[in-house]
Write a protein that binds this DNA or RNA. Structure first.
Lengths: 215, 215
DNA sequence: GAATTAATTGAACGTTCGTTTTATTAATGC
DNA sequence: GCATTAATAAAACGAACGTTCAATTAATTC
């Protein structure tokens, strides 16, 4: 009826985070109760409040760390080259890989924004906007350099991100398609959508279906 | 403390539906209480149970009618022609128009699926699959006819639908872009993504940026 | 090995939830 | 105008919710 043998704060907190992402992704934030979460972890509900002062603090922590992870992943994957096609390819590959690997956390970050307070919502959206701006910059640079032909970079960036993130809705690892195949397909679709050419001024389109996609 | 002057079942039920779509879209199904909904309509919570036996029945009704509306809209808009490019254009135009016009209901139908019972979830997903199959058929027909060049019609259909439906996330009527402009952009992006050509065997691509899009 | 700190339990608090029941009044049909 | 039906209010139900508090035990420190 008190501290249990082998109990360890760090391990418990990690278990809480993991279980929370999984439960919120499956049931939704509002539908998940603190008692349910505690049961999943194997503790009483009161124990959760040692690690997160409120239920919303828990949600916010999960979301903030997910967004930080996304920005970190991109700043690691971002290539040094100025070539817009390479930069766009790197963005797409990073985005698909990250989102497939963290399907549940992405689900939470995308679906539960309305459960945040105004101030915290603003913080998350700021990070999201920064990430989207990276794509808009690539698209604008590429258009100005003549590598892409795009009507509206803002609209195109949103369309691409929605398309790519949507992969988590239908993709299940270990089914018909591998992660590499899915990534290659999305890369090809992206390059065609933006009207990418292999190099400036060339009419040859990038990655037509049936061709091997040059990475 | 009982029936109020001017009360009318039909009007009340319509008001309940309307307020429910709006509230669920804004707060989420779990976060919306029946008392909140009743207050929005201007009645007591108990009055809602005259029209919908349970909260989940209300949600299911809204979703089912939304999906029926989508299928109806497409069966009206679907062209008689066999030309895949025209059929795809009609699909995109109908999809964008319908989803922009019914942003809130779409939000509800996409986000609250997990609050349905298994049986009802299956019913909704069946309608959704039927709708998606229409797009897959167009893409397959177009690929076989040589009008599109697509790697994987299933994957491409999902990517296109995610891209198009995503318009409701960022688009706000009356801001920078008109509905017509947005539709034209999405049509152009779609045609490029599927590698559409104006007619079979021609190398000329459909709707490059900068050209006028032929509708 | 005693004192301190870390981790957790169990019980309880007040609130809100979806829903049901009963009573009451407005509209309708004859 | 009387009987019937439609539409609602008011009050209450038990259950579940997020959260707090006090007590208790395990691990750590000295």
């Amino acid at each position: 009826m008190a501290r249990t043998t082998g109990s360890d704060g760090e391990k418990t907190e990690a278990a809480v985070r993991e279980a929370a992402v999984s439960l919120i992704a499956r049931l939704g934030y509002e539908a998940m109760s603190m008692r349910q979460l505690a049961a999943e972890v194997g503790v009483q509900a009161a124990a959760l409040y040692r690690y997160f002062p409120t239920k919303q603090d828990l949600l916010f922590t999960l979301m903030r760390e997910h967004m930080e992870g996304l920005l970190d992943a991109w700043s690691t994957a971002r290539p040094a080259t100025a070539d817009p096609v390479s930069r766009l390819a790197a963005y797409v590959e990073n985005h698909i890989a990250f989102h497939i690997e963290r399907r549940h956390a992405t689900h939470v970050s995308n679906m539960e924004l309305r459960s945040l307070s105004h101030e915290r919502l603003t913080q998350i959206l700021k990070m999201r906007t920064a990430y989207e701006k990276e794509l808009r910059t690539i698209l604008r640079d590429g258009t100005e350099a003549g590598a892409f032909s795009i009507d509206d970079t803002g609209l195109t960036a949103m369309a691409l991100i929605q398309m790519m993130t949507g992969v988590i809705v239908w993709f299940r690892p270990g089914e018909r398609l591998s992660v590499a195949e899915v990534t290659a397909s999305y890369l090809s679709m992206t390059m065609r959508l933006v009207g990418a050419t292999i190099s400036h001024g060339t009419a040859r389109p990038y990655g037509r279906a049936g061709d091997a996609v040059a990475l």
